[in-house]
Nucleic acid binder design. Structure first.
Lengths: 209, 209
DNA sequence: ATTAATAAGTAACAAATATTACATAACTTA
DNA sequence: TAAGTTATGTAATATTTGTTACTTATTAAT
């Protein structure tokens, strides 16, 4: 089998026949941290399912400035790709590997066929949509209702969970880009958090206390 | 038939059998402008399909402050309800009638059955998801990337399209709530737009030039 | 017509965030 | 180790948005 990770992670979600089909038509692809997996305006011909690692989904404005919308975790699929494949074929978001990641890429035709004839696939798709919707709502809440210091702290907490580590390896500039603000603002607020004994700063490193 | 609007609007989307079923199980409900159609935390037992009018979908923070996410137009369904019905049963958004509106309410059980056995319904659902996703992305873009004056102007333009009229009947306070800011800010920016000859202001009325 | 209620205008000020500019610290590489 | 590069700290200032407080205009009610 292409991947026994697939077997382990999805045997309660997909039926046996589908698992085998996924294994047959899906291509296993690996990305290194910070690799662009899908870029904005790129035609979408495959649906990715994330086996290992994390992916961040970003939106971009005309000036090329980014904004993190949400993270994908293992077992999840990029719903953006789904919608794109049904209608518009160009990606509206950028997907970047947050860590080294492995994906199974499934050709659109199969995805459409399964949607037509496989119950477990349909449930998976609907479930994915629901999760994504919730994340989008949270993203909106965060941007609209929270101040930058709160957004920053949430972001850090989120990352510790994602990476399963209280010590983050990040630069202030990277955070600024994800949160769509400037490096100076982030440095300032981080220093504030340090003064409140919530974090400890050092070069390329933030320890959450 | 319950509604010939249904027949007219949906005969190219749903197959004949489904149209009849919708007509049988769906309940026609009317709302007046500003009526709350679905509120936050309200259990969802029906899927609404909008026949006439417009609905605005709002999100709320802990302080009870609102934020407009997007508008629903005739022929559309509230995807939020869909996701809610599949998992969480409580609404995460508030739906308010932007104008007098008529909806067909479909019990969840039917929606699930159709999703299982009716191709045209599945396509409708997927199509709905896609539209909603796009609107959510636009909402995020707007909040994250635009300044209040641009958001305001877009909001006004959007409303003229929705209401098919260049003259809007609104109060500054209502706009402020939709955009999650204060009345004073909106009044200030509107006056600015008026000075730029983009709009003309009077009590309860904004004319887009 | 007078009064009350609601909507809008505006000034003054406060807070949050953005920008510029530069200093210092920590790593990298020749 | 010296020089260059990258990351961070921080002050000064500008801009945007939010808040308070009050005035004026418009409509509704008595």
């Amino acid at each position: 089998m292409n991947s026994n990770v697939l077997q382990n992670k999805f045997n309660s979600i997909f039926d046996e026949a589908l698992l085998n089909e996924i294994d047959t038509v899906g291509k296993l692809v690996s990305f290194k941290k910070d690799d662009i997996i899908i870029d904005i305006n790129q035609p979408l011909t495959h649906i990715p399912i994330l086996l290992n690692g994390n992916i961040k989904i970003l939106r971009e404005d005309e000036g090329g400035n980014e904004l993190l919308i949400y993270f994908l975790e293992a077992g999840e699929t990029c719903t953006m790709s789904l919608t794109c494949c049904m209608g518009t074929t160009k990606s509206k978001i950028r997907a970047v590997a947050e860590q080294d990641s492995t994906l199974i890429m499934i050709p659109v035709q199969n995805m459409q066929k399964w949607f037509h004839n496989n119950e477990s696939w349909r449930n998976f798709i609907i479930q994915s949509y629901q999760t994504r919707f919730d994340e989008m709502l949270e993203a909106i809440d965060s941007i609209a209702f929270l101040k930058m210091d709160e957004r920053l702290y949430n972001y850090l907490i989120n990352k510790t969970k994602l990476h399963a580590s209280k010590t983050l390896v990040v630069k202030h500039l990277d955070i600024a880009e994800d949160l769509h603000t400037s490096r100076v603002v982030i440095s300032r607020l981080l220093k504030q958090l340090e003064n409140e004994n919530k974090i400890k700063l050092s070069r390329n490193k933030i320890e959450i206390l």
